[in-house]
Design a protein around this nucleic acid. Structure first.
Lengths: 218, 218
DNA sequence: ACCTGAACACCGTTCAAGT
DNA sequence: ACCTGAACACCGTTCAAGT
């Protein structure tokens, strides 16, 4: 009736639910009912819920296929990779939670970008263990940057969003000013940034500056 | 019989369970039975499970009380703060998941360190919005650094740990070498680092170098 | 190969009731 | 103020059975 029930279709629908209502709303039973099928039908395509979330992650990362290593300097390639990560984290609100909940080793597409990042870190002159840490650091940094207060295309309707922002700011402003002076003062910008684009470049600069500074000392 | 049932005692026991068996094992019913009490008893001290986890986070962060701002240069203070964060993340295996699952704004002790970090970023010369991003970046970076392959005092018995490490390495080494050359080659160091101490300083250097590099451009 | 039906053990939470 | 008992709606998952 509405397309075949395939592992890919299930993962895609799961991502839609997760992006729209949060990862907690992605439930085997809810997902099945959305797909017009019995909960147990999903167990044919995924061994359990953990594998389902891994499927979501794989589909997510598959979105930005890492190009094969080219001849540009590693700084540029690393920047591309970081921006790609940030971008998919931005377009998929639930990506953060998905990535946090699973083991990267189980996600094929994730292994691909991880391997590429490891290679770039090695060519930058870092040791094996340093490269290991740098790649983890890069992922977490991307999460931090992508986690900036939502600016556009939110899944909430415009009114709900505005109200939620107002609510959060009020919560910050009503804190005891003597205990949290900076939080109270910065309540506005903390919940609704003005320039998302500048926000991006600054964040990526921040991450790459650290890596390049240490690479220069090798 | 075994001490009063107080919000603090509940949060502490919850942390013990979470650190020992993972946050998923922290269940209202399980927690209550561990405390020798009815599940509903916990609802007197915490409105719901979300508030319970917030209580866990608060107790966690309360561990390293942020000293009031002193007169040292902001670089040193920021380093202290980062190392403190990494340290509590290390001593509490479930801290990562706890922090990921809740909204920082709801955790008083978290607000305190956040405010202090914001202040340090401002004195470093960063704008309001830049400081906002830097503090988030700092937290995520601390998570990345603390998440290095476990080296000591693991909650698993020594044998189980060794076997688990062997298992993980085998999983990496059995990957297709032509697709993931670096992962296969670095399988060993990826799962069991040699020098945790050097690992730490390098990680903190990485984070602070980025911040200092951008601060120098102001 | 692909899906259903019924059942099991486990959640978080509410609400009235006890002391 | 602090805790219990019973009940509700919801999970993930197994297992046998259908086509």
């Amino acid at each position: 009736m509405m397309g075949k029930l395939t592992a890919r279709a299930i993962a895609e629908r799961a991502l839609e639910i997760g992006d729209a209502e949060g990862l907690d709303a992605v439930t085997i039973r809810r997902l099945a009912s959305d797909l017009g099928v019995t909960p147990m039908a999903l167990y044919w395509h995924f061994k359990n819920k953990e594998q389902l979330i891994i499927g979501m992650a794989d589909h997510l990362i598959g979105g930005f296929a890492p190009k094969p290593a080219d001849q540009r300097p590693w700084q540029e390639q690393l920047r591309d990779l970081t921006e790609g990560l940030i971008n998919t984290l931005r377009t998929h609100p639930c990506a953060k939670h998905v990535i946090e909940q699973i083991d990267a080793v189980a996600v094929p597409n994730f292994l691909a970008v991880w391997d590429q990042a490891l290679g770039l870190a090695r060519t930058a002159g870092f040791s094996v263990e340093e490269s290991c840490l740098i790649t983890k650091y890069l992922l977490q940094s991307a999460i931090a940057i992508a986690d900036a207060p939502v600016h556009d295309q939110a899944f909430l309707s415009g009114e709900d969003l505005a109200q939620q922002v107002r609510f959060k700011r009020l919560g910050l402003q009503s804190l005891p000013g003597e205990s949290y002076p900076h939080l109270v003062e910065m309540a506005g910008p903390l919940v609704e940034p003005k320039d998302p684009h500048l926000y991006d470049t600054f964040g990526v600069d921040l991450v790459l500056s650290g890596i390049e500074a240490l690479a220069a000392r090798r």
